[in-house]
Design a protein around this nucleic acid. Structure first.
Length: 501
RNA sequence: GGUCCUGUGGCCGAGUGGCUAGGCAGAGCUCUGCAAAAGCUUCCACAGCGGUUCGAAUCCGCUCGGGACCUCCA
């Protein structure tokens, strides 16, 4: 079955056909490193990590570009040109680049915790000032940009007039009508520089107190909000590439402006497939600074935030996110995270056990119904991914498969119920989907080996105690280990196993 | 005010016009020295009101509720 992707541009699922198969170019808007990443940021990066992994599995040679915004944008345009990063730097008494470095490290640390694969290229805005200036020059030369007082703006109205004739009006991605926007866009102060209030900045003149500043043909200043993505995507992926991803909240104005800029420079729509992940909400509200409901990733992993009743591991969070389809909102709650934590543990315990088994090919199934049912569930995994990355359904099917694995483990069924080839197939595909595609890894703490040795010893002692019918001792060992988060289980064959909770 | 999305069982979440989503929680059973785990079984649903249809959670309309974007935002 072919891979289908929901294209925000056309508002429908489309068969994915790369421009230059087997090569695929994918650009995803990365973070602004002026602060620590929060739970909301985790969603796009995990979502597109899975997209990346699945495309690789499909055999594509993917160049995945994810930028880092370290140049700082003005928060309130016109009113008081304010560089986000510079402002925070003064507050924290850090040099801007020192601050950028700090948060970049934290961001990379979080990505690693989530087991996200690094992108092929991770360009920074400050490293591409020249490319951005060149692009702005081109936009001005073509008549779609104009200078005013050392700043440069994009002429949205002219662009819209000209490109509407080419079926690419401004607002094509977000479904906005420019005339309506001209009526409804909020009035901001100091807008006299702009021809129209919908125009956006390509280059901004730096006020005296602004720390981050670069020389340009229009004086000292810094790049506008949207130009970096256009410049870097063009540089590394070409004039047109396959997939552009990001959060839904970037659809307007960020991606809309990106389309306008790139189209003027390159004469074509920059990306063919636009993918947008939906928001993570908390108590029904989008997580965001303006709502004051942000849970930082470090707080999430440590459990030190008023909204949290406990800590949640990176894999729990990843699994939580993958249990939903990326285009729907996902509501955070302790109850939901705890459910994911338990579900993930059950999944991984069964999976790890299965992985360690060896099966013999060639044997027949004594339960052909179960045998074919298992094969169906396994085969559906790829079908669900093909259907716009429906990880929710993939996970649901994994839980259809798990009971059979556990039944085999607990000897509720015998190995010959299912053909050896089928078990081998299940083994192989679960590894593929759980580890390679969903990117879920087994979480192990530090010093795990030593700890294993200690627990093994205690298990031995308990076994002896049980043999002597000294249940007081055996219970003491089991209960106290349980309190420390190590759970002992008496298996059917008299052996004991344990898991770290 | 404008544009758009959404409302599924205690919680989180899939979903095709007709067939059990799944997870967590709850109940029962099996196994077990007791537990835990696991397996099996089971309870709980499609905001409300109309309409289309042989048949709708799924299409249409209205009502009510929630949210997003229009300003930095994943």
């Amino acid at each position: 079955m072919p891979l289908k992707i929901y294209n925000s541009l056309t508002r429908q699922k489309e068969v994915f056909e790369p421009l230059n198969a087997p090569y695929v170019g994918m650009y995803v808007c990365g973070p602004t490193v002026s602060g620590e990443s929060h739970l909301g940021h985790a969603r796009p990066f995990i979502t597109f990590d899975v997209v990346y992994r699945f495309l690789l599995y499909k055999g594509y040679k993917v160049r995945y570009v994810r930028n880092i915004t370290d140049a700082g944008h003005f928060e309130e345009e016109g009113k008081q040109a304010e560089d986000k990063i510079a402002t925070k730097a003064i507050l924290e008494k850090l040099e801007p680049m020192e601050l950028v470095q700090k948060y970049t490290h934290l961001y990379h640390w979080a990505m690693e915790q989530f087991n996200n694969m690094p992108p092929s290229i991770e360009p920074t805005a400050t490293g591409h000032i020249v490319e951005q200036i060149e692009m702005i020059k081109k936009i001005i030369a073509d008549g779609y940009g104009y200078e005013a007082n050392g700043s440069v703006y994009f002429d949205v109205v002219k662009y819209n007039d000209d490109y509407s004739k080419k079926n690419q009006p401004y607002g094509i991605l977000s479904g906005r009508n420019l005339d309506e926007q001209l009526d409804t866009t909020r009035e901001l102060e100091n807008q006299e520089e702009k021809k129209n209030k919908v125009d956006f900045a390509l280059w901004k003149k730096a006020p005296a107190e602004h720390i981050m500043r670069w020389q340009s043909p229009w004086g000292e200043g810094f790049p506008g909000w949207h130009i970096e993505c256009s410049a870097m995507a063009t540089k590394y992926l070409g004039k047109q590439f396959d997939i552009h991803g990001g959060g839904m909240d970037l659809q307007f104005p960020h991606h809309e402006c990106e389309i306008a800029q790139s189209t003027v420079c390159n004469h074509q729509m920059p990306a063919r497939y636009w993918m947008h992940n939906n928001m993570i909400t908390i108590n029904g509200r989008k997580m965001g600074k303006s709502y004051n409901n942000v849970i930082k990733l470090s707080e999430l992993f440590a459990g030190n935030h008023p909204e949290l009743t406990q800590a949640y591991s990176p894999m729990t969070v990843r699994f939580f996110i993958l249990q939903s389809q990326y285009r729907g909102t996902l509501d955070f709650s302790n109850e939901a995270l705890q459910a994911s934590e338990k579900a993930l543990r059950r999944l991984m315990e069964a999976y790890e056990w299965l992985k360690a088994q060896s099966f013999t090919a060639g044997s027949n199934a004594s339960d052909p119904v179960l045998d074919s049912q298992l094969k169906t569930w396994v085969n559906e995994l790829e079908t669900f991914m093909d259907d716009d990355m429906n990880t929710a359904k993939v996970v649901a099917n994994l839980f259809e498969i798990i009971p059979s694995v556990n039944s085999l483990k607990d000897k509720h069924i015998t190995a010959d119920a299912v053909a050896g080839d089928t078990w081998i197939f299940v083994q192989k595909q679960l590894e593929l989907f759980i580890e390679q595609i969903l990117g879920i890894k087994v979480e192990q703490g530090a010093n795990r080996q030593q700890l294993n040795g200690v627990v093994d010893l205690l298990v031995e002692i308990r076994k002896d105690a049980k043999t002597r019918k000294d249940f007081a001792t055996s219970d003491k060992i089991r209960n106290q280990l349980a309190e420390m988060g190590i759970q002992i289980k008496d298996e059917k064959d008299g052996s004991m196993s344990y898991t770290f909770i």
